[in-house]
Each structure stands twice: as C-alpha cells, then as structure tokens.
Computed example of a mutant assay.
Amino acid sequence: MAKVTLKGDPIHTSGELPEVGQAAPDFTLVDQDLAERSLADFAGKKKLLNIVPSLDTPVCAESTRRFNDYAASHDDTVMLIISADLPFAQKRFCGNEGLDNVVPLSMMRDKAFARDYGVLLEDGPFAGVTARAVVVLDENDRVAYRQLVPEIADEPDYDEALQALG
C-alpha cells in the first residue's frame, strides 16, 4: 500500500505501481464506443498510461492536453488516458478540447485495473477512483517508467515520462 496526499491530507492506495522491468498487468477497460479494450489492442506500440482521478479536474485536463500534443508527432506511441469517468464524459471532454491523439479509457465496469496497478484510492474524499500516476510501457508491455504523483493535486513529471518513451 502506497500513500499519497490530497492538499496535504494522507490517502492510501490499494498497492504499489508495477516495478520497472516487470510485465505490465493486462486490463479490460471501456473506450468511447463502449467496447472493451486490453493491452493486446495496442500491441507493438509504446504506451503511456496517464492515470487520472477525473478529466473534470484542471490537472487531469492539463496532463491529457500535454500528452495529446506529444502523441501528434509520435506514431509509434499510444497515449491511454485512464479514469473513472464514464466514456460519454471522456468523449465530450476530448471533443470539446480537440484532443484526438489520446485514447480515453474508463473503469466504469470494473476497478480491477486500479487494484492491479496499485492506484485505487482506499480512503479520503476520492475513495474509489485512482491516484494520479503515469506508467510507460515498451512495445513488449514491460514497464519502462512509473510515477505515482505524491500529491494528487500536482502534475506528473512530463519530461521524465516522455524521456522514457525514447
């Protein structure tokens, strides 16, 4: 179990992020068309998992914009934006923001992803959604980089995450 904070108040997660070098846990998440997606759907590509509590918050929105900009010029990489938001809200957000280089995925049917990646918030006002984290996977779905952002209200380290993509 890891600990993060929300405006200084401690919150516990369900576990730890996967270790660098480890095979990433597979997942089943829901895309904007209500189809189930897994790691196999993005085979052969580098993947950046931008794990956020909700796209309806300023920091989550900003990180999605930043990773969308990077993806525009990197065809070998897919940016997965993972949140507890319903697919309809994710689609509306990305449409309103003109973000077409990211793939939003929802945990609406199951929280197994959040538990398997150790980011499910166990207590505090956001219990049941995810902590803020970034996980970079190589083309073979091995963890190349991970960051559990210590303060949920802070942005991730964009430079380190993008460097890990190569």
Rank of each mutant, 00 (worst) to 15 (best):
V136D: 01
A23E: 14
P18H: 01
A131C: 10
V78F: 02
G8E: 13
R92I: 09
S73E: 15
D157Q: 14
P10L: 06
L148C: 08
P104C: 06
Q22H: 13
R66W: 10
D76S: 08
V129Y: 03
I51G: 06
A71W: 10
L121D: 03
A72C: 07
R115Y: 11
R132S: 12
V134S: 13
G98M: 04
L120E: 01
D75Q: 14
V103F: 03
A153Y: 00
S63G: 10
K47E: 11
M79S: 12
G124E: 06
D138L: 07
L99D: 03
F126Y: 15
V143Y: 13
V20N: 05
Q32I: 15
L55T: 05
P125K: 13
P156G: 02
E16R: 00
R132D: 11
K111M: 10
D41T: 06
E139A: 14
H74L: 03
A23T: 15
A161S: 04
T77Q: 05
F27I: 08
Q90C: 01
L55A: 04
L99S: 02
G44N: 08
A43C: 01
Q32H: 06
A133M: 10
F67K: 05
L48F: 08
P104N: 08
V129Q: 05
G166T: 06
L55Q: 12
D100C: 09
D9Y: 02
P58L: 06
V78G: 00
V20R: 11
G98L: 05
E16H: 00
L49T: 10
F93M: 00
A112R: 11
F88G: 03
V4M: 10
E97A: 15
L49G: 14
A24V: 07
E97P: 03
V136I: 13
V59A: 09
I81S: 09
P156N: 05
P25D: 08
D9S: 08
I82G: 07
N50F: 04
L48T: 13
G21K: 14
G21M: 14
K45S: 05
I82R: 03
E122L: 15
S63T: 12
P25A: 07
P18I: 00
Q32N: 11
P58T: 10
F113E: 04
